[in-house]
Design a protein around this nucleic acid. Structure first.
Lengths: 183, 183
DNA sequence: CTGGTCTTTCAGAACTTTTTGAAAGCAGAA
DNA sequence: TTCTGCTTTCAAAAAGTTCTGAAAGACCAG
């Protein structure tokens, strides 16, 4: 497999990359980052910064940033080839593992800080016997906190590093499934 | 409860609104939209466009757009008061229902289109006996498609309009839980 | 050390999204 | 009909984000 790949714009690989790129928002990352990930995933083999730059036609800086961010998210790993100074990158190949990393990261980055803020609000609410704050406000706040705690806990269980993941998902679908699709 | 509410910036209501606003990205909506939703949710009572404008200090246009979008997402409803020409808005009060609406919408808007693109790529790949496309590429594509289908199906089951939702979530947590938190 | 190869950083440019405010639209009352 | 009170729309402005490319940094080999 040659180092500098040249894909046609309508090559299946490229079409996959584009489709995946459009999804970036769902995973909470930028389009380019998603494309870089898609390219690494579908290619399977380790690619270096220049491969990524050339294939996606992006700048060196952008490639470097995106790759590092993917490594931070834990869904891309760094690899070295003997006798080659360059650094190579490989995407995790198990989709379920990818999913787990993403869920874990997003909970850490987004749900946890929100919960922290809400705890603060609640704690300031309780002791002061708050002049005139509707008690129902407190109840709604609690309801939201409970829900988010449940989400975080579920996320950990469902997608956590040790989680049952796939099997659990499958079994969920299995029990009392109604007739689905034909496709 | 007066029509034009005036909250202190550090009022618990406002603090909730701000915390929730910062979360917008997670739900795939803009900060302002999230704040409008937070305000309606925590207030509990129906508010009109002017209430929202004044409380959040945003323009009429923005308030109007955000409210309509929330109605489209199905997590805010329109209400009319007898003898009042104004339109009022109330947020769904059951957090689990809100969650379900959001999951359903996002799958519809984001996962389904992606799946559609991937099906196209796969279908173009199969018949042509594609000159030189690595068979592993096809395998990886299939793996991704399978995963996304599972997600969509799970989403429907778990968060769908008829779904078991909360109970299911609770039971998931219950079985083989390891010692969690104290807090 | 010096020179070469590769990686990272960062200020500004390009692009995207969000917000505004004024104008147009709509509906009921008189 | 016209007036009035309210809602929606939309073009332009502001704010926010992502990308580029050049320069600086790191590291190794000789």
């Amino acid at each position: 497999m040659p180092q500098a790949e040249r894909f046609q714009a309508d090559d299946p690989t490229m079409r996959f990359v584009e489709a995946w790129g459009r999804m970036g928002s769902v995973w909470g990352i930028s389009r380019t980052m998603a494309e870089v990930h898609a390219l690494l995933y579908i290619t399977g083999a380790p690619l270096c910064t220049d491969d990524v730059m050339e294939t996606l036609e992006i700048s060196r800086g952008n490639a470097s940033m995106s790759l590092r961010a993917l490594v931070d998210w834990g869904i891309v790993g760094r690899v070295h080839k003997r006798g080659d100074r360059k650094e190579y990158f490989v995407a995790e190949q198990d989709v379920w593992t990818v999913f787990r990393s993403i869920v874990r990261e997003r909970i850490k980055r987004e749900v946890d800080p929100l919960l922290a803020s809400l705890y603060e609000v609640r704690d300031d609410l309780a002791p002061a016997a708050e002049r005139g704050t509707d008690p129902e406000v407190k109840a709604r706040l609690e309801a939201m906190i409970d829900f988010l705690e449940l989400c975080a806990a579920l996320g950990e269980r469902f997608a956590g590093p040790t989680g049952p993941g796939l099997q659990l998902a499958a079994s969920l679908l299995a029990r009392n499934h109604r007739s689905k699709h034909a496709d």
